[in-house]
Simulated assay, not measured.
Amino acid sequence: MSFSGKYELESQENYEQFLEAIGLSHAKTDHKVLTEVVQDGNNFTWTQTIPNWTWSNNFTVGQECELKTMSGSTFKAPVTMEGGKISVKFPQYQFEAELVDDKLVMTCVTPGEKGVTFRRVSKRI
C-alpha cells in the first residue's frame, strides 16, 4: 500500500512528554497537524505542517539520506522499510511510520530507561 496522501491529526499520545524529552518543551502542542506524503517507489517526500511552520524531508528507502530534525538541524541516517513500516534513527529518538486501516500511524521512542513513546494517528483526507 502506498503512503502517498494527505493526513490530518486524529489523536496523539505523550506529545508534550516527547517534546520535553528531546528539548523542545517550549513548542506549542495545541495545533492541527497536517502530514503530506508523496511516494514514488522507494523515493519519499514527507512534509508536516502546522500554522506558521513546515518541516519536510526527502529520502530514499534503503539509502543513507540527509534529513532534518524538528528543530531544524540536519543529520545523515539510513532509512529502512520492513513489513510496510518505515524506520529512521533520528539523533534523539527512533521514528517509525506505518499505515494501519488507511491511517498513518507514527511512533517516536526516546532511548533509555525512562524513554518516552509518542504515538500520532492521522486520518487520510
Rank of each mutant, 00 (worst) to 15 (best):
M1W: 09
F3Y: 11
S4F: 05
S4D: 10
S4L: 03
S4W: 06
G5A: 08
G5Q: 05
K6S: 12
E8W: 01
E8V: 10
E8Y: 04
L9H: 04
L9D: 01
L9M: 09
E10K: 11
E13K: 04
E13F: 01
N14C: 00
N14W: 00
Q17K: 09
Q17L: 02
Q17W: 00
F18A: 01
E20H: 10
A21K: 05
A21G: 02
I22T: 03
G23K: 05
L24P: 05
S25G: 15
S25Q: 15
S25R: 14
S25N: 14
S25A: 15
K28D: 14
K28M: 12
T29G: 08
T29K: 05
D30M: 05
K32P: 02
V33L: 15
V33D: 06
L34D: 07
T35D: 06
T35I: 09
E36V: 13
E36S: 11
V37K: 05
V38A: 14
V38T: 13
Q39C: 13
Q39R: 09
D40K: 15
G41F: 11
N42C: 12
N42Y: 12
N43Y: 12
N43F: 11
N43S: 13
N43W: 06
F44E: 10
T45M: 13
W46R: 03
T47N: 09
T47C: 10
T49V: 11
I50Q: 09
I50A: 11
P51W: 10
N52S: 15
W53E: 13
T54G: 07
W55T: 10
W55R: 08
W55Y: 12
N57E: 08
T60I: 14
V61N: 08
E66S: 12
E66M: 08
K68L: 06
T69I: 04
M70E: 04
S71E: 14
S71N: 14
G72E: 07
S73G: 03
S73P: 00
F75A: 03
F75H: 08
F75C: 06
K76C: 06
K76W: 02
A77T: 09
P78W: 06
V79N: 03
V79F: 06
M81G: 03
E82F: 01
G83W: 03
G84R: 04
K85P: 04
K85M: 12
K85D: 03
K85A: 08
I86M: 11
I86R: 03
S87R: 14
V88E: 07
K89W: 12
K89I: 13
P91N: 10
P91A: 11
P91Q: 12
Q92C: 09
Y93R: 07
Q94Y: 05
F95K: 10
E96G: 15
A97T: 12
A97R: 10
E98G: 12
E98F: 12
D101S: 07
D101I: 00
D101W: 00
M106K: 01
T107W: 00
C108M: 13
T110H: 00
T110E: 01
E113H: 09
K114I: 02
K114A: 12
G115D: 05
G115C: 02
G115M: 01
V116E: 00
V116Q: 00
V116S: 00
T117F: 00
T117Q: 03
T117R: 03
T117W: 00
T117K: 05
R119T: 13
R119P: 01
R120V: 00
V121A: 02
S122Y: 05
S122L: 13
K123G: 05
K123E: 00
